[in-house]
């Protein structure tokens, strides 16, 4: 790569750096500057979230029920574990443990694929129920129903004046007004689901629900793109680790990629409670 310009015995030391520390420090400053732009990049979406939630809290409370908390929690665990292996990989690189570095990078990449796999299941479940981003949104029967959270937590929309009656109703009964049972059967037969039309939810709220999914898909989608880019970067570093490029004095790329990966984890740490854990 930089052989022609290298410093002889240090093939990855670019000619414009005095020494490896100089190169490392420059790279580290660069990655931190990049992470700052990433935070500002995501902040636009967080801003949209904050403003819209402040304006229509009831939309978020209700729409959050369509999200699968269990899958979100598993994905949080997967991402946190991959953060551990990424941090461990940096330690391996610092100590010149080639095998450990390869193993930890591989586990990190596998976790990233696992995250995307679970994300794929979640998205396809949403799409099956007609919960698309933007104008394609057309909620179908059961979209906000019992399936994602189990019968015990059956969703009942409670506007202030309906709160009492909803509390009196037994959990599980609130949604099984005949239609949803038929809808569940229809789904098993592979037939089209009926449009979702819960009489308990005001029309004004129904109209706004699609904006929640616009925000949900933008935030998790942009995050997902970052995970995919992370897979590419870490995959490339894995090939370099196998080729034995990294030493205790040259491990910058591992450190910088791990910092990026931790930031992706950091953003998910906020996305998870903001989207999935709304009561």
């Amino acid at each position: 790569m930089s052989d022609a310009h290298g410093h002889g015995d240090k093939p990855f030391l670019a000619h414009h750096f005095e020494d490896e520390d100089h190169q490392f420090d420059s790279g580290k400053l660069g990655i931190w500057a990049f992470l700052v732009t990433e935070i500002l990049f995501f902040s636009g979406l967080f801003c949209a979230y904050v403003i819209y939630r402040a304006m229509h809290p009831e939309v978020f409370t209700f729409a959050s029920n369509a999200l699968d908390t269990q899958m979100g929690a598993i994905n949080t665990g997967v991402l946190i574990f991959s953060s551990l292996t990424a941090a461990w990989a940096v330690r391996n690189a610092q100590l010149g443990q080639k095998t450990g570095l390869i193993v930890n990078l591989s586990i990190t990449i596998l976790c990233a694929f696992g995250f995307m796999g679970i994300k794929y299941l979640e998205y396809s479940h949403k799409f099956d129920k007609g919960l698309f981003p933007g104008d394609k949104y057309e909620a179908k029967e059961g979209a906000y129903g019992d399936e994602s959270k189990g019968n015990a937590n059956t969703v009942a929309f409670t506007s202030p004046d309906e709160e009492e009656s909803a509390e009196e109703a037994e959990p599980g009964v609130a949604f099984s007004n005949g239609d949803s049972a038929e809808a569940a059967l229809a789904e098993e037969d592979g037939e089209e689901l009926a449009p979702w039309n819960d009489p308990n939810v005001p029309e004004a709220t129904k109209r706004k629900l699609k904006i929640f999914f616009g925000i949900y898909f933008c935030m998790t989608g942009l995050h997902g793109i970052h995970v995919l880019i992370g897979i590419l970067v870490l995959g490339w570093l894995l090939t370099r680790a196998i080729r034995g490029h990294f030493t205790p004095t040259y491990y910058g790329p591992i450190d910088f990629a791990a910092l990026y990966w931790h930031l992706v984890d950091l953003i998910w740490i906020y996305l998870f409670p903001l989207l999935y854990l709304i009561n």
């Binding site: 931790h262 950091l266 409670p273």
Partner: peptide, 15 residues
């Protein structure tokens, strides 16, 4: 809780 988690990640994992 998210902020505590984020702080842990930044201070330790991100060095």
């Amino acid at each position: 809780i998210a902020t505590i988690k984020a702080t842990l990640v930044m201070l330790i994992f991100m060095h």
